[in-house]
Amino acid sequence: MSVLVNKDTRVVFTGITGNSGGFHAKLCMEYGTQVVAGVTPGKGGQLFDEKVPVFNTVTGSIENEGANTACVFVPPPFAADSILECLDAGIELIIAITEGIPVNDMALVKKKLLETNARLVGPNCPGVITPGECKIGIMPGYIHKPGTVGIVSRSGTLTYEAVWQVTSLGYGQSTCIGIGGDPINGMNHTDAIKLFNEDPDTEAIVMIGEIGGDAEEAAAAYIKEYVKKPVAGFIAGTTAPPGRRMGHAGAIVSGGSGTAEAKIAAMEAAGIVVAKTPSDMGTALLEAWGK
């Protein structure tokens, strides 16, 4: 078992004929993901990689190939439209990789998203992987291993770092979810933690956060109240100067809110073992887990 995606997930890539969309669609297929269709308006009827049918619309990919999950690789100016198209077409899970979508566009997407039952992961995220079954996104497959640790993070490469540490210690992952670094996104830390908490095959959880916003504090409060599974965590940005935006549009400390200290304190108060450095995420997990 796992959360969000598994071997039966049928994926449509929007923007599959673009350079990075195509590159990563192929890597996902090599990993074993069922990439059943692509969408590029105007290129319907073509075959991607000589086997994946390309459609003009998302609806086309659902009607003809039974796609139920979308991976959005469309460039920023058109990405919000692509997500909205997926929502209108009835896709249940949308994973948006695109980085650099204007925040106003995402405010409109979010409003629409909340009117549906669909889930959005991202944007500006590495994607979702259930090791050994399904990889949707840009994460390197080989660092993962099937197992029982659920990992959630805003950051892409920092998630890989955590996954690699867990794998190197001999443990695998149930599912890894990269929720993305933008100020407005779909799933948040708490949503992911809820899924892991309810998943019988997830035994322990790693939650990675960073400065800015208060999503980590909210997740910590949820964990304190409802989660009995062991949880380890890390917050990036302890040394980031206030008022400067550290790459992720979300990673900014302003007016004293969103500091690493406040987040670490909230997590520790919830019984989460917080790693002192990004190199200790794996060992923090073992400590929380009693292994």
């Binding site: 892409g156 890989y160 400065i211 990036a236 940005g237 790459g247």
Partner: peptide
């Protein structure tokens, strides 16, 4: 960005 911040840390 996350790893870059973590590297500074």
């Amino acid at each position: 960005a996350g790893l870059a911040m973590a590297t500074m840390d």
